[in-house]
Amino acid sequence: MPLPEGPYARRTARVLLMDKEDRLLLFKFGSRRRNHVWLTPGGGIDEGEAVNVAAARELREETGLVVTPEQLGEVVATTGGYAELGSWIKGNIREDFFFHRVDSLNIDSSGFTDYERKAIAEIRWWSVADLESTAENVVPWGLVPLLKSLLRDGPPANFVELPWHH
């Protein structure tokens, strides 16, 4: 299914952050409306903000890792579609993903918003094997094949369109 056309009710910049042991960093978000969901670092793009600038900002706020937008490279994957998230969001959403490697990282969550402090139940590094075998709700869909491709071949020449997860 092709990505929805803009304008978007919400557009996000996210980072697939992997360490030298090929583990992916994910945040476990809680919700009263549904079960927990594991998400990559990232969040909303501010008005007039470039997607790579937003990704670098979100990475700093949520993990303490400081990178330049240029260090993130190009978007490696994207997903999007229609979602109704209560009174918060209703409409087309688009998520753009960057891929970045670190040797290791001590997570600094001091930049979390009040909402993130309340909603994030756990922070965890996941191996690809753990992601393949988990029954947990992890998004985006298509994450494991994407990670295997990125680890094997590096960033793609053109971004990968992942299935929408709502």
Rank of each mutant, 00 (worst) to 15 (best):
V102P: 06
Y115H: 08
D108K: 07
E70V: 10
G48W: 03
T68S: 15
R94I: 12
E47H: 13
F99D: 01
R117Q: 11
I107M: 11
E49R: 06
Y82D: 02
V51Y: 14
S87N: 15
Y115R: 14
V51D: 14
E116G: 05
S109N: 03
V67C: 02
R57H: 06
F98R: 04
S104F: 00
E70A: 13
G80S: 10
H100A: 04
Y82W: 15
R117W: 02
D103E: 13
G86E: 01
T63K: 06
T68K: 12
K90V: 08
E95S: 14
T68A: 03
D96G: 07
G111C: 09
D108V: 04
Y115V: 09
L105W: 10
N92T: 10
V75K: 12
F99V: 00
D114R: 14
S110W: 01
G111A: 10
R94L: 14
E74L: 13
A50K: 14
K118I: 08
L105D: 04
R101E: 03
G86I: 04
R117K: 15
E58T: 00
V102N: 08
L85S: 02
F97R: 12
E74C: 06
L65N: 09
G48A: 03
L59V: 10
G91A: 10
R101F: 01
F112R: 00
